[in-house]
């Protein structure tokens, strides 16, 4: 038997699911969206994040809802096809909401200006966008640290999402792995398409881009 702490970190759904995990997951998603609003951090994809574009608060909530629901939808369909047993939708919704908890860390990574400066510097140097920005070595080190933390957070979240799917839909082995991967790719495509079609103007407006670069 694995130690209880590692189960709580990587598969808390053994102990918590359904309405309680849905309430907790929503609370964390709201906290993430509000923090994202203050640090201009957009979680505009199932597993994606972007820094720097200012937007109204409601957009951060919509981003959170779309990212969460698109994966729930594809996993629900995958579960119905692949699982031999029946399962409750509320377990999938609740555990998937809680699986997004690690993303609460990401908006805090958007507060240091170093990340913005290095991104602006890279955009200017590689694509010729915006004005020339100077980035110090300290900025670059901090930027690399932010990227490393983000990668760890995203991996942790994917592990949680996978375990949520396994527990909620009673799946194991290759069947679970393959169907989860396909559902994740499809959900990412759905979320990206939705954001680009519905909020193209906000994401690509010059003000947002100027803010991003300055």
């Amino acid at each position: 038997m694995k130690p209880k702490t590692s189960i709580w970190i990587f598969n808390p759904f053994v102990y918590i699911a359904g309405w309680s995990s849905l309430a907790l997951g929503w609370a964390i998603m709201i906290a993430t969206a509000v923090t994202g609003y203050f640090s201009n951090t957009h979680l505009d994809g199932v597993i994606g994040a972007g820094f720097g574009l200012p937007a109204p608060l409601w957009l951060y909530f919509i981003e959170a809802a779309v990212a969460w629901l698109s994966l729930c939808l594809t996993l629900f369909i995958a579960g119905r096809i692949v699982s031999k047993t029946s399962f409750r939708l509320v377990d999938l919704l609740g555990t998937q909401a809680l699986a997004r908890a690690p993303m609460l860390i990401v908006p805090f990574l958007g507060f240091p200006e170093a990340g913005r400066r290095v991104t602006g510097y890279l955009l200017y140097r590689t694509l010729g966008l915006g004005e020339e920005i100077t980035a110090t070595y300290a900025d670059i080190v901090l930027f690399i640290l932010i990227i490393i933390i983000m990668v760890i957070v995203v991996i942790w979240m994917i592990v949680l999402m996978y375990n949520s799917y396994k527990v909620s839909c009673n799946l194991k082995g290759t069947k679970a792995g393959v169907s989860f991967t396909l559902a994740l790719i499809l959900a990412q495509a759905i979320a990206s398409a939705f954001f680009m079609l519905a909020f193209k103007d906000i994401y690509l407006n010059p003000e947002g881009l100027n803010y991003f670069l300055n």
């Binding site: 759904f13 102990y15 699911a17 399962f87 527990v167 009673n170």
Partner: peptide, 8 residues
């Protein structure tokens, strides 16, 4: 344990 865990 959670409901789905027990059901599994």
């Amino acid at each position: 344990f959670s409901y789905p865990t027990v059901r599994n």
